[in-house]
Simulated scan of single mutants.
Amino acid sequence: MPENQRADARRNYARILAVAEEEVASQGAAASLEQIARTAGVGSATVRRHFPTRRALLEAVSKERIEALRVRARDLTGRDDSRHALLEWLDEVVAYCVSVRGLAAALAYDADPVHDNACSAVLEEAAGPLLHRAAQDGAVAPDVTVADLIMLIVGITLATEHHPDPAAQAERLFRLAVAGLSPRS
């Protein structure tokens, strides 16, 4: 939200964002923009002026959580066991995505490459050093990218969203993806 906006525009933005956080938490990424506008006491044009796309709204709602994951990646960088540090961070991303409805949708890549995905961009930048170190140590294949890992997590989260225990199922599938399909020797 630009600092030079009028006070009423800043208040509207804050009110819309607060209502959107509640709606996305209860309804997920498909939360009704019209319902958000009604609850916030503004018109849908006001919502669209502040958040021109659903993705922009989801990114704004997810901003704090994404920042916490960015800080956590920085804190884990440099640990002795680089694979464990990367997996610990990825576990936290999975847990966030499962517990915060709408976050996986905010991280998903759009078919429209013209528009950046701010949430994924922040996570890619934050996790880059973790992944680089794990690849240097031979703990991760050198061709794996953070974008690959985010897409994997998004897919798992969206696939388990309606499971009776989405957190447990997402964790199980993530562990399966990390371990691979081969039996343990």
Rank of each mutant, 00 (worst) to 15 (best):
E3Q: 13
N4E: 14
Q5N: 11
A7N: 08
A7I: 12
A7W: 08
D8H: 14
A9M: 12
R15S: 12
A18T: 13
A18M: 11
A18L: 13
A20T: 05
E23F: 09
A25I: 04
S26Y: 00
S26H: 08
A29H: 04
A31M: 07
E34Q: 09
I36W: 03
I36V: 15
A37Y: 11
R38L: 14
R38Q: 15
G41F: 09
V42Y: 07
G43D: 10
G43N: 09
S44C: 09
S44L: 14
R48P: 00
R49Y: 15
F51G: 00
T53C: 12
R55N: 06
L57E: 04
L58G: 01
L58V: 04
L58D: 05
R65V: 03
R65W: 02
I66G: 03
A68E: 15
R70W: 07
V71Y: 07
A73H: 11
D75A: 14
D75G: 02
L76M: 10
R79E: 15
D80S: 14
D81S: 14
D81I: 11
R83L: 14
E88D: 12
W89Q: 06
L90R: 07
L90C: 10
D91W: 06
E92C: 05
E92I: 00
V94H: 02
V94D: 01
A95E: 07
C97E: 01
V98L: 01
V98H: 00
S99V: 04
V100D: 01
V100P: 03
R101G: 00
L103I: 07
A106R: 01
L107G: 02
L107V: 05
Y109M: 12
Y109G: 12
D110V: 07
P113R: 12
V114A: 15
V114Y: 10
H115F: 10
N117Q: 10
A118S: 13
C119F: 03
V122L: 10
L123G: 04
E124D: 09
E124V: 05
E124W: 05
E124K: 11
L131G: 06
H132P: 02
R133T: 14
R133D: 13
A134W: 06
A135H: 06
Q136H: 13
V140T: 09
V146L: 05
A147I: 11
L149D: 00
L149H: 07
I150H: 00
L152A: 13
L152T: 12
I153T: 00
V154A: 02
I156P: 01
I156T: 01
L158E: 08
L158D: 02
A159Y: 00
T160F: 02
H162W: 07
H162K: 12
H163Y: 06
D165M: 03
A167K: 04
A168I: 04
A168S: 13
E171A: 15
E171Y: 05
E171D: 13
L173C: 03
R175F: 01
R175A: 12
G180W: 07
G180V: 00
S182N: 15
P183E: 14
P183I: 11
R184C: 02
S185F: 09
